[in-house]
Design a protein around this nucleic acid. Sequence first.
DNA 1: CTGAAAGCGCTTACAG
DNA 2: CTGAAAGCGCTTACAG
Lengths: 355, 355
Amino acid sequence: MPNKEPPAAAGAELPDAAAPVRRMRGGPKGLRITDVAAQAGVAPITVSRVFNSPETVAPETLERVRQVVQKLGYVPNRLAGGLSSSRSRLIAAIVPTIAHSLFSETIQVFSETMSRAGYQVLLALSGYDDSSEEVLLDAVLSRRPEGVLLTGVAHTDSLRERLANVGIPIVETWDMTDRPIDMLVGFSHYQIGVAVAEHFLQRNVRKPGLVSANDERALARRRGFRERLAQAGISGIAEVLVAPPSSVALGKAALPRLIEQAPDIDAVFCGSDLLAIGTLNAARQMGLSVPSRLAICGFGDLEFATETTPQLTSVHVDGTRIGVTAARCLLDRLSGSGQSKVTDVGFEVVRRGSS
Amino acid sequence: MPNKEPPAAAGAELPDAAAPVRRMRGGPKGLRITDVAAQAGVAPITVSRVFNSPETVAPETLERVRQVVQKLGYVPNRLAGGLSSSRSRLIAAIVPTIAHSLFSETIQVFSETMSRAGYQVLLALSGYDDSSEEVLLDAVLSRRPEGVLLTGVAHTDSLRERLANVGIPIVETWDMTDRPIDMLVGFSHYQIGVAVAEHFLQRNVRKPGLVSANDERALARRRGFRERLAQAGISGIAEVLVAPPSSVALGKAALPRLIEQAPDIDAVFCGSDLLAIGTLNAARQMGLSVPSRLAICGFGDLEFATETTPQLTSVHVDGTRIGVTAARCLLDRLSGSGQSKVTDVGFEVVRRGSS
DNA sequence: CTGAAAGCGCTTACAG
DNA sequence: CTGAAAGCGCTTACAG
């Protein structure tokens, strides 16, 4: 039972024939602001102020109300508060997935930062399937969030337009684009592909291959990779595309298929650290020494990958910085300062096993 | 601009001296159910039914309303809906952290399952610090969630009592207890400690050590580990406790300190796979072969750990199953069936490098 | 510094 | 199958 007492009845209220019927709507459901107000001997609006603008309340009143709140265990109803004030204090975070994910660190620090500022995070997992995106957006917008964090740029025009039209601050992250909906904190996946290609070229790779998930961002990395290699006269790159989410197992299975296509392959760019680790394991089993016979480059921000497997090169991205920066962008805009802006956080090709 | 048209005015409404002042509350803020109703030529309640009980609406009416909804781009306001119906359709997930975490997979599938059932997940990150727990709970309860997922059993009595008193279904996960608040899906950390001790004993370990975070669950594993070893006459176990969240770096730093305490140590139980990987790296650097000279056992559900490092033993827990089972428990209770119950999902000591 | 009235956008509980 | 009225628990916009 959430509460022990029904609303206090003011004496014996006999039904008045002329009065409209007072509908009962499910009985007593919990403490309301009026319960606190009555106990503290103030008006409901004063209780409201104790929570929302305590500096406008006389110290004695403040103390008295707070004691009643404490004693009763009153917790304000933000559904009501949000409806009334048009301030939901909710921020939606739309993420493909948080399991084993590059994004979990971003969401972690984003959530911490937002909650310190008095907002809560509604988690919306979009998966890698665009088909249900409209439904997801409906669900998200029905909560009337005051801001939205997107991992990745919004794909469809319809989605972009709807988000733009809500009129709340939007941050896109983990990607780069010429026409962000509003704000953006990320980096260019295409440029990562270019950087990895250049890294391979510097190491005199002759026959590079690719293992990648076929989600949009991974495909952008692939494009950069292929185009830079093409400039260097290398084309006809062997590749295996897998359905996201990528995993160690998928990487493991990919290498044999890659080698079938190109037996003399000498380097692989993997779309994620998970794929890279799987590929590495497969290489070990096939007796290919890494990196001398086969160089492997992953992508991610997991300390695991390079800590555990010094043979691996990886492209590292600062997920924490993305989360914090994205939160600050939103908070700036919510507090009225803050402009639309684009932040490129860059990336880094890490070669622990480069010796 | 969220919307283009102000609410339709019914002709020229001249201010009536006798009528009460109609306060403007910030102007037009978006489409309301009445806008849709007006366009479709029905009452607002009918539009409401189209969303909430379409089977009670005549097919033609349904179609007409839906077309107007589509055309206008109307999205219902669930703050209002939730307030009115006392059904927030929100489930709170209280988690210490999702970054690099064992919990992220649980939250992932939990969220997927709940959203398929029409609920959304409010993410509340509690950290490993109990001090702000009351504040966090206030924030959570202010959203009037219909259910709560907790990772770990609630610690303080005050918290347990408050959660129990809300009267909504609660699932505790990732742990075991004799007196759950309501429902529980988990396993015994103490028994894991016992199992790892037995595993070590079977391998004739003489001088085991421990590297653990000092959070409540890790300490329960430690207790099981120490008590089982004590039964076998092994005590005075060298140990290093680190502050959560654990990491590869902390594991790396821990081994030298452990060896300082006990130079002849021959096995280490690490509180997490991250610590285990760090310990493994340190062992490599110190020239200790694993597992022959030093056996290492971790804990987690990350396929990384054992896929990457076959030298490692690890205790595996099915985070996915926990998430799905927890979601089902809540959904059963929300639909009126479902009893309070405890599910032990167990665990498994995985020895890939056991040959 | 405090309060009475009205309204936020829905749904309940009836009634037809 | 559909609707008019009242209410959900807050906050806004005034007024004092």
